[in-house]
Design a protein around this nucleic acid. Sequence first.
DNA 1: AATCTTTACTTGTACATACAAGTTTCTATG
DNA 2: CATAGAAACTTGTATGTACAAGTAAAGATT
Lengths: 238, 238
Amino acid sequence: MEKSTRYGQIQEDLKKKIQQGSYEVGDLLPSENELCAAYHVTRTTARKALQELQNEGYITRQHGKGSIVSERRNTLGLLTVRGFSETVGHEVRNVMISKPSIHDWSRDFSFSPSEKEVVSKCIHFSRLRCVGTTPVMLEESWLAADCVPSFMEQEFVDGSFFKTLSKRYMIEITGSEQEIRAVRADENVGILLHVAAKSPVLYIAVRYTTSLPGYYVYSKLYCNTDKYPIGNVYSSPK
Amino acid sequence: MEKSTRYGQIQEDLKKKIQQGSYEVGDLLPSENELCAAYHVTRTTARKALQELQNEGYITRQHGKGSIVSERRNTLGLLTVRGFSETVGHEVRNVMISKPSIHDWSRDFSFSPSEKEVVSKCIHFSRLRCVGTTPVMLEESWLAADCVPSFMEQEFVDGSFFKTLSKRYMIEITGSEQEIRAVRADENVGILLHVAAKSPVLYIAVRYTTSLPGYYVYSKLYCNTDKYPIGNVYSSPK
DNA sequence: AATCTTTACTTGTACATACAAGTTTCTATG
DNA sequence: CATAGAAACTTGTATGTACAAGTAAAGATT
């Protein structure tokens, strides 16, 4: 969990304090110079940490004033690369709908797998993500089998797929590309998400990029956005 | 148009070359050191430009290798703060559905206007954005009237709302928060977007933050995602 | 020919410093 | 008392340097 970089440590430290309520919404974080003194780093390093927090939407920064803690709302902030469990604060439950198994690369996909990937076998699994007792998201994932030996024989680390990739295979998620659509729920999706068939659900096709060049993780998400809309925060670091 | 910062100039320069096809998808941009020499700046400044391009999804960067030009696909990349006209490359047409007019602050909104804003009058307008001849997005916008004198008497600069704010009122868009839902199109939306009533459309509620603290721009977007899905790219600058 | 090693590249992190520019607060002046 | 201005903060931009670490190609060894 410990980040290896100085700025990463400061970043995680401040994030924890925000999440725990040491800083309330609207509060000012310590200034860059104060962070320099507290962590014994230069301003460049302190700035980097704050810039990251801004990118993640935890703070906004104002020239001449400081770093202001942003409002966090009741949304699923999965438009960044953070995992589901990490972005949704409250009680999250995951139900494995179909356990990881070898599968063919399906044809109908927004992103076409690279040449490297199609020669390898493909692992597929799907999960239902719930907040409390209400199902909010059905997630199907695909990844090439050759980089994750004995993936199917073991349970996920802490129930988290991303953590499993990181801890067990040293694969980090570095970014994502997403295509978002509003579609009609088919029968299967409707039953799982507790919505009527043909009612509108959010469909997101994701290609996650990883620290392994040319190695991607693909996901299809179906979301019931009635109670929990998808959230996104963007701050231009300018 | 000209950015006032060195890194901004380099950033715009490279972006232009990517858009014009001087660099193809998968190509490597000049290395940081080459950019330093070409623009007579230090690596810090060159890095900043590349980092911005990464944030905007134009490139990905790989440790030890270089900056790789990313694939740009046929999506509406409005999940960043770039305006509609800037992100959609091709022929974009805007049809003003209802011209700017004084209005009350509507109640049913995902974001509640701040105290400062409700005392001021509210300007409202709505536009239909088309790619070629197909309507893809209906946009309704609200903003407090007191910061934009004689807003309603003048035409938009280049037909762009963001440009108008920037050029005429020195207000820059600095970030956004968004809530995304899949909803049924009501009759009005259906007609304008050329879809059947009650068919699924993407609904996005946006609050744009500006360079004026406490001053926001609110938008409601209804999107037909059949042909043009909403796109989003995220690269963690780690 | 195949494999290991070196070398020359690349980006990533971190230091130290300087000045510009926006915000707030205190202070002297009217 | 009110106002203008100075001072003391804040963040933003930029230079310069150093070393770490990943990548790729040339070269030496087997």
